[in-house]
């Protein structure tokens, strides 16, 4: 875990927006691809969790973007090399954008987001929306992996099989994932009510929040 992960959520979010704008202003693929590669390298250097999974998804995204843009541009009569250059530029933009927000999402726990929002004295509704928006995807992704482990533990061979079988088994995870998503939503709603979350009241936080957000409580100077 890099110290960068403890950066204040809003600093990360603001930086991600700024870099995303740079990616979208890149004039062509000669600038766009190196910039996207630089962003990916940043993710690797800062040891963002589960980067392998993201790279697989990004690879698929790149392929889909290039293919769809190529078809579109070729149908409009643009020369293949020119079409490829445009498609590569678009793919680079998307990779850079998704990578930047993947960094924000993976390195910001819902607790750290709650703390940053509370310290900024944001309205409770904004606090809640931001925490859930950036927190729920990793939660569901972890759940998806846990269900895969459960399938393996019941004898379902999901690793050493054809792509189609893998896909079928992945779809079988949909039912428990849906159930779990509903349970998670219920647990969040239940705990918000039980623990006094009120949209009309601004929260406080136990964390020390500045440029960095205190990740855990330490016992160097115990009270008792």
């Amino acid at each position: 875990m890099s110290r960068l992960h403890d950066l204040n959520f809003f600093v990360k979010l603001g930086t991600a927006f700024a870099l995303m704008i740079v990616a979208w202003l890149a004039p062509d693929w000669r600038w766009g691809i190196p910039f996207a590669a630089l962003v990916l390298a940043l993710l690797w250097v800062t040891r963002v969790p589960k980067l392998g999974g993201y790279l697989k998804g990004a690879g698929l995204l790149t392929l889909m973007v290039i293919v769809s843009w190529m078809i579109n541009l070729l149908l409009q009569g643009i020369a293949p090399l020119d079409a490829l250059a445009i498609a590569a530029k678009m793919a680079a933009r998307l990779v850079a954008t998704t990578a930047l927000f993947y960094f924000v999402m993976e390195t910001s726990t819902p607790g750290a987001i709650l703390a940053a929002c509370s310290a900024a004295r944001l309205p409770a509704v904004a606090t809640l929306v931001l925490s859930l928006l950036f927190g729920i995807i990793p939660m569901l992704r972890d759940e998806f992996e846990r269900i895969a482990d459960a399938q393996r533990a019941r004898g379902m061979e999901i690793d050493d099989v054809s792509f189609l079988k893998k896909l079928r088994f992945a779809l079988a995870r949909g039912v428990p994932l849906l159930v779990q998503a509903i349970r998670t939503a219920h647990a969040i709603s239940f705990s918000l009510t039980l623990y006094g979350f009120d949209l009309s009241r601004k929260r406080t936080t136990w964390r020390d929040v500045g440029l960095m957000v205190e990740p855990r409580m330490t016992w160097k100077d115990p009270i008792r």
Binding site: L114, P138, L194, T204
Partner: peptide, 17 residues
């Protein structure tokens, strides 16, 4: 009654709210 918060977050949650 739990979601993806840290131990300290959960304990502090009723007070912070």
């Amino acid at each position: 009654q739990l979601w993806d918060l840290s131990v300290e977050d959960i304990i502090a949650f009723p007070l912070e709210n």
